[in-house]
Design a protein around this nucleic acid. Structure first.
Lengths: 173, 173
DNA sequence: GATTGACATGTCGAGTTCGATATGTCAATC
DNA sequence: GATTGACATATCGAACTCGACATGTCAATC
C-alpha cells in the first residue's frame, strides 16, 4: 500500500488539507501515483487513528490542515530505506505503445499523432511547474523530479517521432 | 479495465496458454502492466464467454492455447483507436524518487545506490531481450518497445548518478 | 522408483481503487 | 440578492487486484 506513504510524503513536504492533497496527486505526483479524494479522506482518518498525522489547524469550510507526527516521519523513513520497492508498474499508455505495431498504418499514424499532442501538452505542463519552482525558494529538491519527468517525456517524444517516420518509408521485408 | 485489452493484445501477437501469458506480463510487459495468473484465468474465461477468444488447441497438463477471434480483434482496435487512454500512472518506485529529497544524505545515498543497482539489472535484462529479438525473425515491431525501455532506463540512470553526485558537493544555499 | 521443479489451471477472501452520489461553504460576479 | 464555481468533506457499492491455498501433470535427475 503506497497510498499511505505517498500521503505521508506529501504532508511532510507541506502540511495541507485533504482536498489539496487530491489536487497534488494529479499535479506533481501525476506521473507516479493517482488517488482520488474518496481514497484520501479515509486514508487520512486511518493515519490519524494510527497517530501518524495530526490536525495542525482548522480553516474555512470545515477544512483541516494535516501534518505528519514524529511517528509518521519514522514510518516514512522506514518504508523508504528498509523495505524493498514493489517494482510492478501500471500504465495504460505504455500498454498501448506496446501494442501499436498491431494496428494498420493509418490507425497507427492516428494514434501516434494523438500521443505526440498529449506529450507536448505534458511537456508544457511540466515546464510551467519547473518555472514556478525556479522562482520559489526552498523547493529546489523537487525541481529534480520535474526535470526527470521532462527528460523522460523528451525521450518518449523522440521515440514517437521515429515510429511516425518509419511509417512513411515503404516496409523493408 | 486494460487487463482485458492487454490480454487480447498479447494473444494477437501470439496465441498461447494462460500460464505463459502470466510469464509475459512479467517479462515483455513488465514496465507497462502487471497481472498474476489469478487474474488472467478468470479474464480468459470472461473473454471466452464474450466470444473474443477461442481455444486453438489443447496440450499436455490440461493446457489450452488461446487465440483471438475476429470479434476480439475488433474490440482491441476499437479500444486503441476510439477510446481516450486512461493517463493515470502507478509506480511505487517513482513515488520513492519523488520523496528522495526528504531523506538525510546518508539514507539518500543508500537508496540511490540501491536504485542504480536495480536499474543496471533492468538494462541488462532488456538488453538480453533485445538480443534475442534481433536473432528471431518476425518480431521486429516489438524491438521498438524494448528500445524505448532501454532509453528510459538510461535517462533514469543518468538522473540517479546526478543525484548521487550532488550529494558529494556541500550544499549551496 | 522417488524426488524435484517447471508447467498448468483454478478459487477464495481480504484489501484496494473507482465512480457516483451527497452535502455544504465561501467569494466573486451578474 | 441570485447564481456560479472553486473549495471542502464524506460515504457507498461495484469492480479490480493480490496473495494464499489447492490440485494436478510431466520430464529430468538421483
Amino acid at each position: 500500500m503506497s497510498l499511505r506513504h505517498a500521503v505521508l510524503g506529501l504532508l511532510v513536504v507541506e502540511p495541507t488539507t485533504g482536498y489539496d492533497l487530491a489536487q497534488r496527486f494529479d499535479g506533481s505526483l501525476a506521473n507516479a501515483w493517482h488517488a482520488s479524494h474518496s481514497q484520501i479522506y479515509p486514508e487520512l482518518a486511518r493515519l490519524h487513528e494510527a497517530g501518524m498525522v495530526e490536525v495542525l489547524g482548522e480553516g474555512p469550510r470545515r477544512s483541516r490542515t494535516w501534518g505528519v507526527t514524529d511517528s509518521g516521519r519514522d514510518e516514512l523513513r522506514r518504508w523508504m530505506t528498509d523495505t524493498e520497492p514493489n517494482r510492478s508498474q501500471r500504465s495504460e499508455t505504455a500498454v498501448r505503445w506496446f501494442l501499436l505495431s498491431l494496428l494498420e498504418p493509418a490507425d497507427r499514424r492516428f494514434v501516434l499523432e494523438h500521443e505526440l499532442a498529449f506529450g507536448a501538452a505534458e511537456i508544457d505542463r511540466l515546464g510551467h511547474i519547473a518555472d514556478r519552482l525556479d522562482t520559489l525558494p526552498g523547493t529546489q529538491p523537487f525541481r529534480a523530479t520535474v526535470d526527470l519527468g521532462l527528460r523522460i517525456n523528451a525521450v518518449v517524444r523522440e521515440w514517437l517521432l521515429e515510429q511516425l517516420a518509419a511509417l512513411e518509408v515503404p516496409e523493408q521485408t
